[in-house]
């Protein structure tokens, strides 16, 4: 397929995604609903920290957790959102079968839908960081920021987000109503396994291996190190900046290859099981 045709299809899916996401409310209300959750989680962390250390306390580790929590909004919005897109299309709007039957194909459609979610995730990340900067004293020295590695890590992290979204969307094709629990569980599972708000060193050894197999663990550590100047994990602190970035790139590429294969396998299985037009809520 010509690249221009593919781009046109992605753009159409993105436009449709925006209509679906935003058509229920006026822009202000939509904005409030969109940012309420990530800002609340950021404030929960700040209040927990304050409850332990007292008002006005500062800690570099807390800043690292806060920054990673801000970037986790991409996972909540894009990764889980792509799974919800499939679920909604099948269970609520009952249009999934038409998407699968159209020449666009599921992967192209999901890529387009993810663009709107990326935009929403970016707003969440920006506002959470802004709240931290203004109200919670989570700041960094601009001159000390490692700009090039930071941008590279950001790009790799966003790519990892997209491919993980494919996996969850694929799993939603196969799962019935339990997809709701699995999607919410995936949000929380990744929050736990990737050491967003604590060093992965605190996890049991088995879970640490799983954590290191996930790109987000590397991504959050890279974002902390390249933005704030210090990571959270003692295990990953043994790696140089280049090694950390190489680790993130490797895990992301492997994850991307596996995820494309996984989503095709899930789609095939969903067709076999007759799940594409099955509604299962009760």
């Amino acid at each position: 397929m010509a690249v221009s045709a593919r781009i046109a299809r992605v753009r159409t899916a993105a436009w449709l995604g925006w209509q679906i996401e935003s058509s229920w409310a006026d822009p202000l209300l939509f904005f409030i609903y969109g940012v309420a959750r990530p800002l609340a989680v950021a404030l929960i962390l700040a209040v927990m920290f304050r409850a332990v250390r007292g008002p006005g306390a500062r800690d570099a580790a807390f800043a690292g957790f806060y920054v990673a929590n801000a970037f986790h909004a991409y996972v909540n919005t894009v990764v889980v959102g792509m799974g919800w897109a499939v679920f909604e299309e099948r269970e609520e709007f009952e249009t999934l079968k038409y998407v699968c039957a159209s020449p666009m194909g599921l992967l192209t459609y999901l890529s387009g839908r993810s663009l709107v979610k990326f935009a929403l995730g970016t707003v969440s990340v920006a506002l959470t960081l802004l709240l931290g900067w203004i109200a919670l004293d989570v700041r960094w020295t601009w001159s000390a920021v490692h700009v090039v590695p930071l941008l590279a890590a950001l790009g790799l992290g966003i790519a990892a987000t997209l491919f993980t979204g494919f996996v969850l969307a694929g799993s939603s094709l196969v799962l019935t109503r339990s997809a709701m629990t699995v999607l919410d569980g995936a949000t929380l599972g990744l929050y736990l396994l990737c050491g967003v708000i604590f060093p992965v060193d605190l996890l049991p050894r088995v879970l640490q291996w799983i954590a290191f197999a996930l790109p987000f663990t590397w991504w959050y550590e890279a974002m902390r190190r390249f933005l704030l100047g210090q990571g959270a994990s003692a295990l990953l602190s043994r790696l140089s900046d280049a090694q950390l970035l190489a680790g993130l790139a490797t895990v992301t590429v492997v994850f991307a290859i596996c995820s494309v294969g996984a989503v095709r396998a899930f789609e095939h299985r969903a067709r076999q099981l007759g799940r594409l037009d099955q509604t299962t809520l009760f």
Binding site: I44, L45, M48, D59, L188, Y191, L192, I197, P199, A232
Partner: peptide
């Protein structure tokens, strides 16, 4: 999954307390 997953967020917050 319904029994296990919702509790994972709690685990993360407990570990956050440990971390600080």
């Amino acid at each position: 999954s319904d029994a296990l997953f919702p509790n994972l967020g709690m685990c993360a917050f407990v570990l956050f307390y440990r971390a600080i």
